[in-house]
Structure formats: structure tokens, C-alpha cells
Design a protein around this nucleic acid. Sequence first.
DNA 1: GTCTATATAAGGATAGAC
DNA 2: GTCTATCCTTATATAGAC
Lengths: 194, 194
Amino acid sequence: MDSAERLIESTRQLLWSRGYVGTSPKAIQQLSGAGQGSMYHHFSGKKELALVAIERSAAALCERAESQFTAPGTAVERIAKFLRLERDALKGCPIGRLTQDPDVIADAELRAPVEQTFSWLRRRIAEVLAEGVQRGEFGPPANARRLDPASTASALVATMQGGYVLARAANAPEPFTEAVEGILGLLVALVADS
Amino acid sequence: MDSAERLIESTRQLLWSRGYVGTSPKAIQQLSGAGQGSMYHHFSGKKELALVAIERSAAALCERAESQFTAPGTAVERIAKFLRLERDALKGCPIGRLTQDPDVIADAELRAPVEQTFSWLRRRIAEVLAEGVQRGEFGPPANARRLDPASTASALVATMQGGYVLARAANAPEPFTEAVEGILGLLVALVADS
DNA sequence: GTCTATATAAGGATAGAC
DNA sequence: GTCTATCCTTATATAGAC
């Protein structure tokens, strides 16, 4: 792995654990083993490096999610698989945590990949749910009309993101799992009624 | 309002908008109009000031929530009122945002009020839900058993916290509302089935 | 491409005068 | 109680040698 690559990966780790405001060029250099000159040779500065790192993390998240959505199974099963993917709840979401970074949100370029990740995720889950409704997984049309794919998708994504908040507040992973199982329980109840 | 008070209130605002890492003593002093000497006379430093500010914000959040939980109405109605309380979704949650602050989470004293706020909130909402189950709002026992108060409460709190994440990512308040309405929709569907 | 030197500002606080 | 002076460290680069 060359210097540029190590710098990007180090930035990804640090953005994840400390956020943009809390990550200094010096910390990136030390973690990557690259010197000052190397960093400023490959990148214009902290912002450009962060942008590349964020875009990479966003792409990784979307790919991981998509591989669950395209797997076989019912709509609820595929969504449940995604929500239950192996995660370190205490580390939080590498993309979601950036929304609390004032300098990221204030900068259109840095915010763009964050915005795209969540708008894609919400839309994609809504599609999977709509597909399930179509297939009759939520019962006959009269019953299925109670499930709104768009808002339910937003609630599912929000529960995950908020699950990280609860886990970090508690300094324990359980609240994340509990929140996820809580909303899946509500969703499954709908299926059971159909 | 005396200096100490203005320093606390300024710290509350800055912690809310910029977080702990992103808030400097100088910024606090400028916003409050107090000088350096004044700040270090009343408080030992940034950390103590932040602790007082966080505890105050936590207390305010709990009071605001409790006033909804004790209002008249069904369990779902009271919870819905809380979730729909007037909020500036783009500002985020003054307590929840602190979970993304590495220096807050790493410090037991600073994390304590954050942890307490969420554990109280989850427990309190679970109590309201359990009360609803008791009263038969979710139908006869055979039906109501599908609703687990504890995990549903965690999902509700998580959806709110994640709603802030989605709103900030989108730079628009709508995703917050959508997520909240999404999970309330699932909850109401359970009531409708009873 | 990478290293070292240098530079300006900000972070976070202490000391002592008033 | 508040102000000003001072201090050391870190943040974030730029410049130029190798």
C-alpha cells in the first residue's frame, strides 16, 4: 500500500473515531506513517483528504447494504438481515457520525456524500418494502395499505442511526440491538396480521 | 443575568451547535461577553463549564418529555405528542449529539448525564407503553403480547435520534418528520388490529 | 515523492494587577 | 470578580532542500 493509500485509510479511521473537527493532519500522518511533505504532496490539505475518505466509506456502506437487499428472501427478511449485519455499535456509523460535525454539514462538498448515502438508503429500503407489498407479504391490498414504504424506510434507517446514539450513550452495544429488534418487531407484527 | 449564568448559557448553545471538541473557551467567552479572567474565576475550565451546561440541558429535556407523558390521553397519544413536540430538526438533539463527541464519551463524568437522559427516557416510554398494554389499548392479552414495551421504547427513542441524523444529512427537516411518522404508523397499526 | 524548517493562528490555561 | 499579560501546545499549512 503506498503513502496516498495509507493516508486515505488512516483518515477514514480517524474520521470514524474522532470526526472531522477532532482529526488533525498530524494525527493522520502519524497513524499512516507518512510525513508532512508526503501528505501535502498527494493532497491539497485536510479537506481534500477527508473528502476522498468520506466518499470511500460511503461507497463501502452502500455496497454492503445492497448485497443484503439483493439476497433471496422476503422483503422483511432482507431488511432484517441488513439491520442485523455485524456491526460494532459502539463505534457508531462512519457516515452518520459526520452529520454531527459542524464543519462537514456547513461544507456542501463534504456533506454531499453523506446526503447521498442516506437518500439512497432510504429510497432503496422503500423499494424493497414496496416490492413486499406488491408480492402480498403484508396481506391483501386492504391490509397492506397500512404500510407506507417511504416513511417506514425512513424510520428503519433512523432507528439504526439512533441505535448507535443509544449505544454510545450507554457505553454498551445492547441498546442498539434492542432498538433494531424493537422496530423489526413492529414490522413483523404487521406481517402476522395479514 | 450574571457572568456565570451567561457563560453557562453560551456553553449550552455552543455545545449544541458545535459539540465539545468544536467549542473553545475563547468562543464561549466571546458569546457570553465575559472575559477570560471571569470564566476561570467561576469555573475551573472548559470541562467543568461543559458539565454544568450538559446537566442543565439534560434536565430540560427530561422535564419537557415528562410533561407530555403525564398529559391525558392514551399511551400512543402521549408518546406521539412527545415525538411531535416542536423541534428544530436541523439543530439536532442537544444531548444526543454529544454521543458523537469522542472527548465526552471518553470521560465518565461528562458521559454520565448523557447516559442517564437516555436510560430514563427509554424506561419512561416503556412504562407508558406497558400502561397502555395494561389498559387494553393494544387489544386483549393474546394480541397485546406482540408489543414489547422495552424494545419498542428503545426503537422510538432511536428513531427520534436517527431522525436528526437524516435531517442534518439532507439539510432539511422533512426526513425527521417522516421517520417519526413512520414508526408511529407502525405503532398505530398495532392498535388498529386490536 | 519525501524530509525538515519555518510560520501564523488558535486552543487552553496560569499569574498577578486592579 | 474582572482584566491584561504571558505561556506552552497543537492545528494547519508553506517553502525549499534532497
